[in-house]
Amino acid sequence: MIRALRTGAFHTGMSLLALLWLGPILWVVAMSTRTFDDIAAHGVGSLPHSFTLDTYRQAWTDGGELRALINSLLVTVPAVALSLVLAALAAFALSRYRIPGRRVILLLMLAGNLLPPQILLIPVSKFSELTGLYDTLAALIAVQVGFGLGFYTFVLHGFMRDLPGELQEAATVDGAGPGQIFARVILPLTRPALAALGALSFTWIFNDLLWAITVLRTDDKMPVTPALLGLQGQFVSSWNVIAAGTVIAAVPTLLVFLRFQRHFVSGLALGAVK
């Protein structure tokens, strides 16, 4: 009896909390289906009095979100892949071998991630000009990889260090070089960590605003987050269209999250469990 009561209390409390967390999001989704006249007449704080999906058409075509989503994917997918490959290589060498100065290197790489990104904006934009990469998606990929590497390496280092050493010792005895050990022994064992980091970095890179406006200046190259800002500039008082644009921009990361939820939740804290 007491147990049933406690279970009931738990679910009531948690449902309320979940509602508190999801409520604002649901509100925006509801708002995206209201007409402009409805919002103008009843305000943004009111319940819907209308229903339309035309807002999505406006955001999708007039607001250029389709193009922006394509750009986002063109940047995010290669950036995530490159970051993970490079970070895995570095973490492998630093965690499984006695590289001289490995602690300093790891600390330095992590320290790079502690920098307030604002300090880098001007030099990064000048540097991308110097290399002729300014206003190309490649520049955005490069800076995303560079800036994320420190953290990914740190996390993967923590994970790889805790892998049991026996397999590697056996492989070494069999004459396998570091490349083979990396590819055949360590990488397969690191897959959960890579999946978690991949999902996480996907959302970070996909959501980025600052780097995109730093190295890009052409509107049809902008990824979805700066494009959403542009959409807000375009449809300032059309809260419904902005809300629709927001929903569109949030869907890809939400899908990644739902698809890889297990990895997010069980693997996110790889760095944490040392």
Partner: peptide, 20 residues
């Protein structure tokens, strides 16, 4: 090439001083 006006405002010096 249309840029959101708030972004444009902060980026204008960068545009003007860029190499290209």
């Amino acid at each position: 090439n249309t840029i959101a006006s708030e972004t444009y405002r902060t980026q204008l010096p960068t545009y003007l001083t860029s190499a290209n």
